[in-house]
């Protein structure tokens, strides 16, 4: 078992075109670090700043829950979870 990351089209350049990649971790932050280890560059498209936060215009969901309401990068994750990353759609 592992945790699955569903990769949005614009980030598939970091995964060799793969739509989904697997990783491990106890929190979302650990999971992103772990996935970034095998697919360098992914992390900086999802996370920014110091201390690290989710990028403002990226939505991240764990099992369909928007993590902004579940603790952001500290959200706990476990084997079998599905993490979805999506660029926000907005404009003026």
């Amino acid at each position: 078992m592992a945790i699955e990351l569903r990769v949005p089209t614009i980030l598939r350049t970091y995964t060799g075109g793969e739509k989904a990649v697997n990783g491990d971790g106890a929190t979302l932050a650990e999971f992103i670090d772990n996935v970034n280890g095998s697919h360098p560059g992914l992390k900086e498209r999802i996370v920014e700043g110091e201390p690290e936060e989710l990028r403002r215009f990226v939505n991240v969901y764990v099992n369909d829950e928007d993590v902004r309401f579940t603790g952001g990068l500290t959200t706990t994750v476990k084997d079998g979870d599905v993490v979805v990353v999506l660029p926000a759609v907005a404009g003026g």
Binding site: R6, P8, K19, N59, Y61, D64, D66, R68, V84, L86, A88, V89, A90, G91, G92
Partner: peptide, 19 residues
């Protein structure tokens, strides 16, 4: 009249359908 955005829920639903 000057801004648009998809809600978090709608954004997810659209992409789940795509998937």
């Amino acid at each position: 009249p000057t801004y648009y955005e998809f809600s978090s829920e709608d954004l997810l639903q659209v992409h789940k359908d795509l998937w």
